[in-house]
Design a binder for these strands. Structure first.
Length: 436
RNA sequence: GCGAAUGUAGCUCACUUGGUUAGAGCGCCGGGUUGUGGUUCCGGAGGUAGUGGGUUCAAUCCCCAUCAUUCGCCCCA
Protein backbone atom coordinates (compact mmCIF):
# COMPACT_ATOMS: atom_id res chain seq x y z
CA UNK A 1 0.00 0.00 0.00
CA UNK A 2 1.34 3.41 -0.92
CA UNK A 3 1.62 6.18 1.64
CA UNK A 4 -1.46 8.27 2.32
CA UNK A 5 -1.43 11.86 1.09
CA UNK A 6 -0.97 14.48 3.81
CA UNK A 7 -2.83 17.01 1.67
CA UNK A 8 -6.31 18.09 2.72
CA UNK A 9 -9.21 17.20 0.43
CA UNK A 10 -9.45 19.39 -2.68
CA UNK A 11 -10.73 22.84 -1.93
CA UNK A 12 -10.54 22.47 1.84
CA UNK A 13 -7.88 23.80 4.13
CA UNK A 14 -6.16 22.92 7.36
CA UNK A 15 -5.95 25.59 9.98
CA UNK A 16 -2.70 25.39 11.96
CA UNK A 17 -2.49 27.60 15.06
CA UNK A 18 -1.28 30.70 13.19
CA UNK A 19 -4.06 30.44 10.62
CA UNK A 20 -6.64 29.48 13.20
CA UNK A 21 -5.66 32.56 15.18
CA UNK A 22 -6.54 34.78 12.22
CA UNK A 23 -9.81 32.93 11.70
CA UNK A 24 -10.65 33.28 15.38
CA UNK A 25 -9.91 36.97 15.18
CA UNK A 26 -12.28 37.40 12.23
CA UNK A 27 -14.97 35.37 13.96
CA UNK A 28 -14.57 37.35 17.17
CA UNK A 29 -15.12 40.66 15.38
CA UNK A 30 -18.16 39.28 13.55
CA UNK A 31 -19.55 38.04 16.83
CA UNK A 32 -18.88 41.26 18.69
CA UNK A 33 -20.50 43.50 16.09
CA UNK A 34 -23.52 41.20 15.55
CA UNK A 35 -24.15 40.93 19.27
CA UNK A 36 -23.77 44.68 19.69
CA UNK A 37 -26.91 45.02 17.53
CA UNK A 38 -28.78 42.51 19.69
CA UNK A 39 -28.44 39.49 17.39
CA UNK A 40 -28.28 36.10 19.09
CA UNK A 41 -26.22 33.08 18.16
CA UNK A 42 -27.87 29.90 16.87
CA UNK A 43 -26.68 26.59 15.48
CA UNK A 44 -28.07 24.14 12.93
CA UNK A 45 -27.28 20.79 11.32
CA UNK A 46 -24.70 20.44 8.59
CA UNK A 47 -27.08 18.11 6.74
CA UNK A 48 -30.45 19.08 5.31
CA UNK A 49 -32.88 17.42 2.95
CA UNK A 50 -31.89 18.46 -0.56
CA UNK A 51 -35.39 19.82 -1.27
CA UNK A 52 -34.93 22.93 0.79
CA UNK A 53 -32.35 24.17 -1.70
CA UNK A 54 -33.99 23.13 -4.95
CA UNK A 55 -36.97 25.38 -4.35
CA UNK A 56 -35.36 28.78 -4.18
CA UNK A 57 -31.60 28.91 -3.98
CA UNK A 58 -31.04 28.93 -7.71
CA UNK A 59 -30.62 26.10 -10.14
CA UNK A 60 -26.87 25.87 -10.24
CA UNK A 61 -26.31 26.08 -6.50
CA UNK A 62 -28.83 23.36 -5.73
CA UNK A 63 -28.17 20.90 -8.52
CA UNK A 64 -24.49 21.18 -9.37
CA UNK A 65 -22.74 22.75 -6.44
CA UNK A 66 -24.23 20.81 -3.58
CA UNK A 67 -22.67 17.74 -2.01
CA UNK A 68 -25.47 15.21 -1.92
CA UNK A 69 -25.86 11.58 -1.00
CA UNK A 70 -28.58 9.07 -0.30
CA UNK A 71 -28.56 7.94 3.31
CA UNK A 72 -29.24 4.41 4.51
CA UNK A 73 -32.93 5.20 4.78
CA UNK A 74 -33.14 6.29 1.14
CA UNK A 75 -33.36 10.02 1.91
CA UNK A 76 -31.56 12.46 -0.38
CA UNK A 77 -29.39 14.54 1.88
CA UNK A 78 -27.28 17.62 1.19
CA UNK A 79 -24.37 19.13 3.04
CA UNK A 80 -25.53 22.71 3.51
CA UNK A 81 -24.20 25.07 0.81
CA UNK A 82 -25.64 28.11 2.57
CA UNK A 83 -27.59 28.98 5.70
CA UNK A 84 -30.57 30.99 4.50
CA UNK A 85 -32.94 28.07 3.81
CA UNK A 86 -31.99 26.48 7.12
CA UNK A 87 -32.58 29.55 9.22
CA UNK A 88 -35.86 30.13 7.38
CA UNK A 89 -36.86 26.58 8.23
CA UNK A 90 -36.01 27.18 11.87
CA UNK A 91 -38.07 30.36 11.97
CA UNK A 92 -41.02 28.62 10.31
CA UNK A 93 -40.87 25.82 12.88
CA UNK A 94 -41.11 28.22 15.82
CA UNK A 95 -43.07 30.99 14.16
CA UNK A 96 -45.56 31.29 17.01
CA UNK A 97 -43.13 31.57 19.87
CA UNK A 98 -40.42 33.80 18.45
CA UNK A 99 -40.43 37.46 19.42
CA UNK A 100 -40.39 39.65 16.35
CA UNK A 101 -38.43 41.11 14.86
CA UNK A 102 -36.21 38.07 15.47
CA UNK A 103 -32.51 38.86 15.19
CA UNK A 104 -30.34 35.81 14.59
CA UNK A 105 -26.74 35.16 13.64
CA UNK A 106 -24.47 32.18 13.23
CA UNK A 107 -20.88 31.48 12.23
CA UNK A 108 -20.81 28.14 10.46
CA UNK A 109 -19.13 26.10 7.75
CA UNK A 110 -20.60 25.18 4.37
CA UNK A 111 -19.63 23.10 1.36
CA UNK A 112 -20.05 23.72 -2.34
CA UNK A 113 -18.76 21.53 -5.12
CA UNK A 114 -16.92 24.14 -7.13
CA UNK A 115 -13.62 24.72 -8.84
CA UNK A 116 -11.45 26.20 -6.08
CA UNK A 117 -9.55 29.45 -6.65
CA UNK A 118 -8.60 32.54 -4.70
CA UNK A 119 -11.26 33.32 -2.14
CA UNK A 120 -13.35 30.37 -3.22
CA UNK A 121 -13.10 27.01 -1.50
CA UNK A 122 -15.20 23.88 -1.33
CA UNK A 123 -15.49 24.24 2.41
CA UNK A 124 -15.83 27.76 3.73
CA UNK A 125 -17.01 29.58 6.84
CA UNK A 126 -19.41 32.43 6.89
CA UNK A 127 -21.29 34.70 9.18
CA UNK A 128 -25.04 34.77 8.66
CA UNK A 129 -27.00 37.68 10.04
CA UNK A 130 -30.76 37.73 9.55
CA UNK A 131 -33.69 39.73 10.81
CA UNK A 132 -37.15 38.17 10.56
CA UNK A 133 -40.60 39.73 10.75
CA UNK A 134 -39.79 43.32 9.91
CA UNK A 135 -41.17 44.61 6.60
CA UNK A 136 -39.83 48.09 7.00
CA UNK A 137 -36.97 49.81 5.29
CA UNK A 138 -35.36 50.24 8.67
CA UNK A 139 -34.69 46.47 8.84
CA UNK A 140 -32.85 46.73 5.53
CA UNK A 141 -30.97 49.74 6.80
CA UNK A 142 -30.01 47.89 9.97
CA UNK A 143 -28.44 45.01 8.07
CA UNK A 144 -26.41 47.36 5.91
CA UNK A 145 -25.39 49.46 8.91
CA UNK A 146 -24.28 46.22 10.55
CA UNK A 147 -22.29 45.26 7.44
CA UNK A 148 -20.68 48.69 7.46
CA UNK A 149 -20.05 48.34 11.20
CA UNK A 150 -18.17 45.11 10.60
CA UNK A 151 -15.97 46.75 7.99
CA UNK A 152 -15.22 49.60 10.38
CA UNK A 153 -14.57 47.21 13.28
CA UNK A 154 -11.81 45.63 11.23
CA UNK A 155 -10.27 49.06 10.72
CA UNK A 156 -11.26 49.46 7.06
CA UNK A 157 -11.46 53.02 5.74
CA UNK A 158 -14.57 54.15 3.85
CA UNK A 159 -12.53 54.30 0.64
CA UNK A 160 -11.36 50.68 1.00
CA UNK A 161 -14.77 49.35 0.06
CA UNK A 162 -18.01 50.35 -1.57
CA UNK A 163 -21.52 49.21 -0.74
CA UNK A 164 -23.61 48.82 -3.87
CA UNK A 165 -27.35 48.82 -3.45
CA UNK A 166 -30.21 47.89 -5.72
CA UNK A 167 -33.70 46.47 -5.44
CA UNK A 168 -35.24 43.39 -7.03
CA UNK A 169 -38.63 44.98 -7.42
CA UNK A 170 -36.99 47.85 -9.21
CA UNK A 171 -35.12 45.39 -11.42
CA UNK A 172 -38.33 43.58 -12.26
CA UNK A 173 -40.12 46.82 -13.01
CA UNK A 174 -37.25 47.96 -15.18
CA UNK A 175 -37.11 44.70 -17.13
CA UNK A 176 -40.84 44.27 -17.67
CA UNK A 177 -42.42 47.71 -17.75
CA UNK A 178 -39.59 49.95 -18.84
CA UNK A 179 -37.64 47.72 -21.21
CA UNK A 180 -40.68 45.68 -22.20
CA UNK A 181 -38.95 42.31 -21.91
CA UNK A 182 -40.72 39.02 -21.41
CA UNK A 183 -39.69 36.63 -18.64
CA UNK A 184 -37.13 34.75 -20.70
CA UNK A 185 -35.56 37.90 -22.12
CA UNK A 186 -35.48 39.44 -18.66
CA UNK A 187 -33.58 36.48 -17.30
CA UNK A 188 -30.89 36.88 -19.93
CA UNK A 189 -30.75 40.61 -19.37
CA UNK A 190 -30.29 40.12 -15.63
CA UNK A 191 -27.34 37.82 -16.33
CA UNK A 192 -25.92 40.34 -18.73
CA UNK A 193 -26.17 43.18 -16.22
CA UNK A 194 -24.46 40.93 -13.71
CA UNK A 195 -21.51 40.54 -16.06
CA UNK A 196 -21.30 44.18 -16.98
CA UNK A 197 -18.04 44.84 -15.13
CA UNK A 198 -16.33 41.88 -16.76
CA UNK A 199 -16.99 42.52 -20.42
CA UNK A 200 -16.36 45.44 -22.75
CA UNK A 201 -18.99 48.05 -23.46
CA UNK A 202 -19.21 46.88 -27.05
CA UNK A 203 -19.78 43.26 -26.03
CA UNK A 204 -22.42 44.43 -23.65
CA UNK A 205 -24.25 46.33 -26.38
CA UNK A 206 -23.95 43.43 -28.81
CA UNK A 207 -25.38 40.97 -26.35
CA UNK A 208 -28.12 43.37 -25.31
CA UNK A 209 -29.06 43.81 -28.96
CA UNK A 210 -29.36 40.07 -29.29
CA UNK A 211 -31.63 39.81 -26.29
CA UNK A 212 -33.87 42.62 -27.53
CA UNK A 213 -34.25 41.12 -30.97
CA UNK A 214 -36.69 43.26 -32.90
CA UNK A 215 -37.14 45.64 -29.98
CA UNK A 216 -33.50 46.67 -30.11
CA UNK A 217 -34.11 50.03 -31.67
CA UNK A 218 -36.33 51.15 -28.83
CA UNK A 219 -34.47 49.25 -26.16
CA UNK A 220 -30.84 50.20 -26.68
CA UNK A 221 -31.16 53.93 -25.98
CA UNK A 222 -32.99 53.02 -22.79
CA UNK A 223 -30.20 50.67 -21.74
CA UNK A 224 -27.64 53.39 -22.33
CA UNK A 225 -29.56 55.79 -20.21
CA UNK A 226 -29.73 53.21 -17.41
CA UNK A 227 -26.04 52.46 -17.52
CA UNK A 228 -25.18 56.12 -17.27
CA UNK A 229 -27.22 56.55 -14.12
CA UNK A 230 -24.91 56.95 -11.14
CA UNK A 231 -27.68 58.02 -8.79
CA UNK A 232 -31.42 57.66 -8.64
CA UNK A 233 -31.83 61.20 -9.90
CA UNK A 234 -30.33 60.12 -13.24
CA UNK A 235 -32.94 57.44 -13.78
CA UNK A 236 -35.50 57.93 -16.50
CA UNK A 237 -38.75 59.45 -15.28
CA UNK A 238 -40.87 56.34 -15.80
CA UNK A 239 -38.68 54.46 -13.37
CA UNK A 240 -38.08 57.29 -10.97
CA UNK A 241 -41.76 57.54 -10.25
CA UNK A 242 -42.21 53.88 -9.36
CA UNK A 243 -42.82 52.89 -5.77
CA UNK A 244 -39.69 50.78 -5.53
CA UNK A 245 -37.53 53.80 -6.20
CA UNK A 246 -38.95 55.68 -3.29
CA UNK A 247 -38.18 52.63 -1.15
CA UNK A 248 -34.57 52.80 -2.21
CA UNK A 249 -34.56 56.51 -1.54
CA UNK A 250 -35.86 55.99 1.98
CA UNK A 251 -33.16 53.43 2.55
CA UNK A 252 -30.43 55.83 1.46
CA UNK A 253 -31.80 58.49 3.77
CA UNK A 254 -31.63 56.14 6.73
CA UNK A 255 -28.13 55.00 5.86
CA UNK A 256 -26.79 58.51 5.41
CA UNK A 257 -28.30 59.46 8.73
CA UNK A 258 -26.43 56.51 10.29
CA UNK A 259 -23.19 57.85 8.86
CA UNK A 260 -22.68 55.02 6.40
CA UNK A 261 -20.26 56.25 3.76
CA UNK A 262 -19.10 54.18 0.79
CA UNK A 263 -22.68 53.99 -0.54
CA UNK A 264 -23.53 53.69 -4.19
CA UNK A 265 -26.75 53.02 -6.03
CA UNK A 266 -26.05 50.51 -8.80
CA UNK A 267 -28.85 49.58 -11.15
CA UNK A 268 -26.72 46.75 -12.57
CA UNK A 269 -26.31 44.95 -9.25
CA UNK A 270 -28.29 41.70 -9.51
CA UNK A 271 -27.11 38.93 -7.15
CA UNK A 272 -27.52 35.35 -8.18
CA UNK A 273 -29.74 33.82 -5.55
CA UNK A 274 -33.33 33.44 -6.64
CA UNK A 275 -34.96 34.07 -3.30
CA UNK A 276 -34.34 37.82 -3.07
CA UNK A 277 -37.51 39.85 -3.31
CA UNK A 278 -36.55 43.45 -2.51
CA UNK A 279 -33.41 45.29 -1.50
CA UNK A 280 -30.13 43.65 -2.53
CA UNK A 281 -26.66 44.88 -1.68
CA UNK A 282 -23.09 43.86 -2.16
CA UNK A 283 -19.86 45.06 -0.58
CA UNK A 284 -16.93 45.41 -3.00
CA UNK A 285 -13.24 45.75 -2.35
CA UNK A 286 -12.00 48.89 -4.09
CA UNK A 287 -8.38 47.75 -4.15
CA UNK A 288 -7.54 46.97 -7.80
CA UNK A 289 -5.48 43.96 -6.63
CA UNK A 290 -8.52 42.38 -5.08
CA UNK A 291 -11.34 43.96 -7.03
CA UNK A 292 -14.08 41.59 -6.10
CA UNK A 293 -17.28 41.18 -4.23
CA UNK A 294 -16.69 40.59 -0.54
CA UNK A 295 -20.18 39.67 0.47
CA UNK A 296 -23.76 40.67 0.07
CA UNK A 297 -27.29 40.17 1.12
CA UNK A 298 -30.80 41.36 0.74
CA UNK A 299 -34.46 40.93 1.46
CA UNK A 300 -36.06 37.51 0.93
CA UNK A 301 -39.66 37.63 2.00
CA UNK A 302 -40.91 34.43 0.43
CA UNK A 303 -38.66 31.83 1.93
CA UNK A 304 -40.21 31.16 5.34
CA UNK A 305 -43.62 30.49 3.82
CA UNK A 306 -42.14 27.60 1.83
CA UNK A 307 -42.18 25.67 5.08
CA UNK A 308 -45.94 25.77 5.30
CA UNK A 309 -46.38 28.80 7.47
CA UNK A 310 -47.70 32.27 6.75
CA UNK A 311 -45.03 34.42 5.19
CA UNK A 312 -42.56 36.10 7.47
CA UNK A 313 -40.39 38.77 5.96
CA UNK A 314 -36.63 38.56 6.20
CA UNK A 315 -33.47 40.50 5.49
CA UNK A 316 -30.01 38.99 5.77
CA UNK A 317 -26.43 38.89 4.69
CA UNK A 318 -23.46 36.55 4.75
CA UNK A 319 -19.77 37.52 4.78
CA UNK A 320 -17.31 34.69 4.05
CA UNK A 321 -14.21 33.95 6.10
CA UNK A 322 -11.61 33.50 3.38
CA UNK A 323 -12.89 36.41 1.31
CA UNK A 324 -12.61 38.57 4.37
CA UNK A 325 -9.15 37.34 5.19
CA UNK A 326 -8.03 38.26 1.66
CA UNK A 327 -9.53 41.70 2.08
CA UNK A 328 -7.81 42.29 5.42
CA UNK A 329 -4.56 40.96 4.02
CA UNK A 330 -4.56 43.20 0.95
CA UNK A 331 -5.32 46.25 3.09
CA UNK A 332 -2.80 45.37 5.80
CA UNK A 333 -5.52 45.03 8.42
CA UNK A 334 -4.55 41.75 10.04
CA UNK A 335 -3.19 42.65 13.47
CA UNK A 336 -0.30 40.91 15.19
CA UNK A 337 -2.15 38.22 17.06
CA UNK A 338 -0.91 36.83 20.34
CA UNK A 339 -1.05 33.21 21.39
CA UNK A 340 -3.78 32.15 23.77
CA UNK A 341 -0.97 31.14 26.11
CA UNK A 342 -0.14 33.80 28.71
CA UNK A 343 3.21 32.53 29.94
CA UNK A 344 5.97 30.33 28.62
CA UNK A 345 7.54 28.89 31.74
CA UNK A 346 11.19 27.98 31.49
CA UNK A 347 12.52 25.54 34.04
CA UNK A 348 16.28 25.85 34.54
CA UNK A 349 18.60 23.53 36.34
CA UNK A 350 17.09 20.92 38.58
CA UNK A 351 13.71 22.57 39.14
CA UNK A 352 11.27 20.55 37.07
CA UNK A 353 9.36 19.35 40.10
CA UNK A 354 8.87 22.81 41.60
CA UNK A 355 8.18 24.35 38.20
CA UNK A 356 5.46 21.79 37.52
CA UNK A 357 3.84 22.60 40.85
CA UNK A 358 4.02 26.33 40.17
CA UNK A 359 2.52 25.89 36.70
CA UNK A 360 -0.35 24.01 38.26
CA UNK A 361 -0.96 26.84 40.73
CA UNK A 362 -1.01 29.42 37.94
CA UNK A 363 -3.47 27.32 35.97
CA UNK A 364 -5.74 27.06 38.98
CA UNK A 365 -5.84 30.86 38.97
CA UNK A 366 -7.05 30.79 35.38
CA UNK A 367 -3.81 31.47 33.57
CA UNK A 368 -2.61 29.64 30.46
CA UNK A 369 0.87 28.34 31.09
CA UNK A 370 3.07 26.28 28.82
CA UNK A 371 5.83 24.53 30.70
CA UNK A 372 9.19 23.79 29.07
CA UNK A 373 11.01 21.03 30.91
CA UNK A 374 13.32 20.19 28.02
CA UNK A 375 16.42 21.68 29.62
CA UNK A 376 17.32 23.26 26.28
CA UNK A 377 19.61 26.25 26.11
CA UNK A 378 17.84 29.31 27.40
CA UNK A 379 18.11 31.30 24.18
CA UNK A 380 16.36 28.45 22.35
CA UNK A 381 13.54 28.55 24.82
CA UNK A 382 13.14 32.28 24.39
CA UNK A 383 13.10 31.88 20.62
CA UNK A 384 10.37 29.30 20.89
CA UNK A 385 8.25 31.61 23.04
CA UNK A 386 8.73 34.37 20.45
CA UNK A 387 7.87 32.09 17.58
CA UNK A 388 4.69 31.02 19.30
CA UNK A 389 3.75 34.64 19.98
CA UNK A 390 3.53 34.06 23.70
CA UNK A 391 3.79 37.48 25.36
CA UNK A 392 5.68 36.54 28.54
CA UNK A 393 8.38 34.13 29.60
CA UNK A 394 8.92 33.21 33.23
CA UNK A 395 12.29 31.90 34.39
CA UNK A 396 12.26 29.31 37.15
CA UNK A 397 15.71 28.49 38.51
CA UNK A 398 17.00 27.22 41.80
CA UNK A 399 17.48 30.75 43.10
CA UNK A 400 13.91 31.70 42.23
CA UNK A 401 12.53 28.61 43.90
CA UNK A 402 14.28 29.33 47.15
CA UNK A 403 13.39 33.04 47.19
CA UNK A 404 9.87 32.76 45.78
CA UNK A 405 10.64 35.70 43.49
CA UNK A 406 10.60 34.94 39.78
CA UNK A 407 11.87 36.75 36.73
CA UNK A 408 9.08 37.63 34.30
CA UNK A 409 10.23 38.84 30.92
CA UNK A 410 7.96 40.90 28.68
CA UNK A 411 8.96 39.68 25.26
CA UNK A 412 7.71 42.74 23.38
CA UNK A 413 10.08 45.18 25.09
CA UNK A 414 12.62 42.92 26.87
CA UNK A 415 11.73 44.37 30.26
CA UNK A 416 12.20 42.02 33.19
CA UNK A 417 10.36 42.15 36.47
CA UNK A 418 11.12 40.40 39.75
CA UNK A 419 7.75 39.28 41.03
CA UNK A 420 6.30 36.78 43.47
CA UNK A 421 3.34 34.53 42.76
CA UNK A 422 0.57 36.90 43.82
CA UNK A 423 2.17 39.86 41.99
CA UNK A 424 2.09 37.86 38.79
CA UNK A 425 -1.53 36.91 39.29
CA UNK A 426 -2.39 40.54 39.96
CA UNK A 427 -0.54 41.69 36.84
CA UNK A 428 -2.38 39.25 34.59
CA UNK A 429 -5.74 40.09 36.11
CA UNK A 430 -5.10 43.69 35.04
CA UNK A 431 -3.95 42.67 31.58
CA UNK A 432 -7.17 40.68 31.22
CA UNK A 433 -9.23 43.70 32.18
CA UNK A 434 -7.47 45.87 29.62
CA UNK A 435 -8.27 43.35 26.90
CA UNK A 436 -11.96 43.80 27.60
C1' G B 1 -18.48 21.90 -16.35
C1' C B 2 -14.85 24.79 -20.00
C1' G B 3 -9.92 27.34 -21.25
C1' A B 4 -4.73 28.33 -19.67
C1' A B 5 -0.28 28.19 -16.60
C1' U B 6 2.55 25.86 -12.84
C1' G B 7 4.37 21.45 -9.73
C1' U B 8 12.55 20.58 -7.73
C1' A B 9 14.28 20.38 0.55
C1' G B 10 9.32 22.86 5.60
C1' C B 11 9.21 27.90 2.58
C1' U B 12 11.07 31.04 -1.77
C1' C B 13 13.58 29.64 -5.93
C1' A B 14 18.13 28.08 -9.09
C1' C B 15 20.98 24.54 -12.27
C1' U B 16 20.78 20.58 -15.99
C1' U B 17 20.66 22.42 -24.78
C1' G B 18 18.68 14.66 -21.67
C1' G B 19 24.79 12.13 -19.28
C1' U B 20 28.62 10.45 -12.73
C1' U B 21 27.04 11.74 -5.47
C1' A B 22 20.37 17.91 -7.86
C1' G B 23 22.21 23.48 -5.36
C1' A B 24 21.32 28.43 -2.67
C1' G B 25 18.82 31.64 0.81
C1' C B 26 15.44 31.48 4.77
C1' G B 27 13.58 27.96 8.31
C1' C B 28 14.67 23.55 11.41
C1' C B 29 18.17 20.70 14.86
C1' G B 30 22.97 20.94 17.57
C1' G B 31 27.37 23.65 19.23
C1' G B 32 30.49 28.37 20.31
C1' U B 33 32.63 25.86 28.11
C1' U B 34 27.51 25.12 32.01
C1' G B 35 20.74 31.20 33.12
C1' U B 36 18.64 35.60 28.44
C1' G B 37 15.77 36.39 21.82
C1' G B 38 14.30 38.49 16.68
C1' U B 39 22.46 39.62 15.62
C1' U B 40 27.21 36.71 14.29
C1' C B 41 30.33 32.14 13.72
C1' C B 42 30.69 26.65 13.16
C1' G B 43 28.39 21.99 12.30
C1' G B 44 24.09 18.81 11.01
C1' A B 45 19.46 16.68 9.36
C1' G B 46 16.19 17.03 5.30
C1' G B 47 14.69 15.73 -1.81
C1' U B 48 12.67 8.12 -5.00
C1' A B 49 12.58 16.45 -8.81
C1' G B 50 3.69 15.72 -7.41
C1' U B 51 2.27 10.53 -9.04
C1' G B 52 2.00 6.72 -12.94
C1' G B 53 3.35 5.33 -17.77
C1' G B 54 6.09 6.09 -22.51
C1' U B 55 10.45 7.57 -25.83
C1' U B 56 15.89 6.80 -25.06
C1' C B 57 21.96 3.36 -24.00
C1' A B 58 20.52 7.23 -20.32
C1' A B 59 15.14 11.43 -18.19
C1' U B 60 14.26 16.17 -12.98
C1' C B 61 14.71 17.96 -18.19
C1' C B 62 11.06 15.31 -24.11
C1' C B 63 5.80 12.96 -24.74
C1' C B 64 1.07 11.11 -22.55
C1' A B 65 -2.11 10.40 -18.48
C1' U B 66 -3.41 11.54 -13.59
C1' C B 67 -3.53 14.45 -9.08
C1' A B 68 -2.85 19.19 -6.86
C1' U B 69 -2.31 24.51 -6.95
C1' U B 70 -3.00 29.26 -9.44
C1' C B 71 -5.48 32.51 -13.15
C1' G B 72 -9.77 33.29 -16.30
C1' C B 73 -15.05 31.62 -17.84
C1' C B 74 -19.39 29.98 -15.17
C1' C B 75 -21.17 30.92 -10.42
C1' C B 76 -20.63 33.06 -5.93
C1' A B 77 -18.71 33.78 0.21
Amino acid sequence: MSALSPQPYKGTRDYYPEEKRIQNYIFSVWKKVSESFGYEDYGAPVLEPLDIYTAKSGQELATEQTYTFVDRGGRTVAIRPEMTPTVSRMVAARRQELSYPARLYSIANFMRYERPQRGREREFWQLNVDIFGDDSVSAEAEIIILADGIMKAFGANPEDYVIKINNRKLINFMMAQYLGLDAVQAQFMVKLFDRKGKISHQDFIDQATEIFGEQAEVGLPKINQLLNATSMADLPEEIRDSSSVSEVQDLFTLLERADVKSLVFDITLMRGLDYYTGMVFEVFDTNPENNRSLFGGGRYDGLVSLFGSESISAVGMAPGGTTFENFLDVHGLIPKLKSSTDIYMSSLGDTSREASKLAREFREKGMNVELDLSGRKLDRQIKIAIKKNIPYILFIGEEEISSGVYTLRDIANSNEYKLNFSDIIKLFTEIDKEKK
